[in-house]
Structure formats: C-alpha cells, structure tokens
C-alpha cells in the first residue's frame, strides 16, 4: 500500500459515487432530456474515475506500467465517444417530437430550428418575388 494505490482507490470510490448519482438522476428527473443529461454526464465522469483509478491501483500494487497506459487510452476513448453518442441520441429524440418538461425555460435548439426555417421561408419568398 502506497500513495499511488491509495489515490487509485479514492478515484474508484469517487467514480462509484458518480455512478450512484447518475442512477439516482435516472429515477428522479422529469423528462427524457434531463434524464439523458444526468445519466450521460455523471456516467462519463464515473467511468473516467473508475478506469484511471484501476490503472493507478494496479501500478501501485506493483504491476507493470502498461496498466496505466492502457487505462488512459480507454478513458480517452470513452471521453470522446460517450458525449457524442448522447448528443446524437438527444438530437434524435428532439427531432422525433418528444415534448419538453412543463417547467423547462430554455429551448435553444428549437429556437435555432425556427430561425433556420424562417430564413429558408424568406429566401423562398424573395426567390418567388424575383
């Protein structure tokens, strides 16, 4: 037991705590978008903590350095892929017409889509005029 493995254990604990928070949010949140946000964000953070913590722990226990290299690579790819997939899922959910929660106040993507549709309309009108 030394500093490295103690840090690794602490990281694994923190990651598990974030996993718990994400599962809690999955139950508690009111609509699809909030649930998706809480589950993805804290699950990504929890995975990073658990994976890098495992690597540090193994190095601290006297295994080879390959552990930490491999876990860092895995963590990098999880950091890259998980938010992208969640983004694509949420965008698909919005476009297929799932309503927002009653209490939501900001709908930037809807505003963006409306502005785009209006711009297209104006362009079409001008084209007709000419």
């Amino acid at each position: 037991m030394n500093v490295l493995s103690a840090t690794g254990e602490a990281l694994v604990l923190i990651g598990t705590f974030f996993y718990f928070l994400s599962a809690l949010g999955l139950i508690r949140m009111p609509d699809v978008y909030n649930r998706m946000q809480t589950s993805t964000k804290s699950a990504t953070l929890g995975s990073l903590g658990v994976i890098i913590g495992t690597g540090l722990w193994a190095v601290g226990m006297g295994h080879s350095v390959a552990w930490i290299v491999q876990t860092v690579v895995v963590a990098t790819f999880i950091l890259l892929t998980n938010p992208i997939s969640a983004h694509a899922l949420i965008r698909g959910a919005y476009r297929s017409g799932i309503p927002l929660w009653n209490g939501s106040v900001v709908d930037k993507y809807g505003e963006h889509l409306e502005a785009k549709a209006e711009a297209a309309e104006n362009e079409k009108d001008e084209g007709d005029g000419e």
């Binding site: 890259l80 992208i84 983004h87 694509a88």
Partner: peptide
C-alpha cells in the same frame, strides 16, 4: 448530422 456528430 449535427456538427458534433460529423466531427466526432
């Protein structure tokens, strides 16, 4: 696809 998806 959105910008995020295409770049990613």
């Amino acid at each position: 696809g959105s910008v995020v998806l295409r770049t990613g």
